[in-house]
Amino acid sequence: MAIAIVRIRNLFAVTMLTGIYSLLAASLFVLLDAPDVALTEAAVGAGIAIILMLGTLALTTSEEKVHKKPQNLLALVVVFITGAGLIYGTLDMPHFGDPEAPAHQHVSPRYTQESVDEIGIPNMVTSVLASYRALDTLGEAVVIFVAMVGVIMVIGGGVKRRWRDRGRVLPDGKRDKP
């Protein structure tokens, strides 16, 4: 799937494939015992992100131009070297589902065994999100706010500028700029 996205030139098809890819990732999260994450990925990754991309394509263009570029080979080499380094790094990692892994040692038992008594919510993801790590969630809200302000500044300013370039309407009904 990802490789098809690399190859395909039509950006509309790329967008659709990205949506399918997000949905596949969401079903993978269900298999990995993360239903909350899967819901979010399906709604946000496969829904909102695709709508945003389609909006962008509507405002710009949906065909990518084809050209041969000399740096493609260099890029491929860089990618392979990085990938090999990362795979070498995984050789020391704990195995998939290993209960002795460090990720399952420190705060995880507290969350899974005591959060129901401490917070009173059966869904542990919710208790961690809203109580133990509420500060992270506040930070997330701040990031979304900043992104929203940024988008408004980047695009909304453009709309205003187009109005200004078109010129003011003069008393005789004509505009002062062509």
Partner: peptide, 24 residues
């Protein structure tokens, strides 16, 4: 472990905010 789930929930939403910004 619920902690990575929470972190990724946050990361997904932040990622979409980032996508919106980039597309803008």
């Amino acid at each position: 472990n619920p902690l990575p789930h929470v972190l990724i929930l946050t990361a997904i939403v932040v990622g979409v905010a980032l996508t919106a910004m980039g597309l803008a």
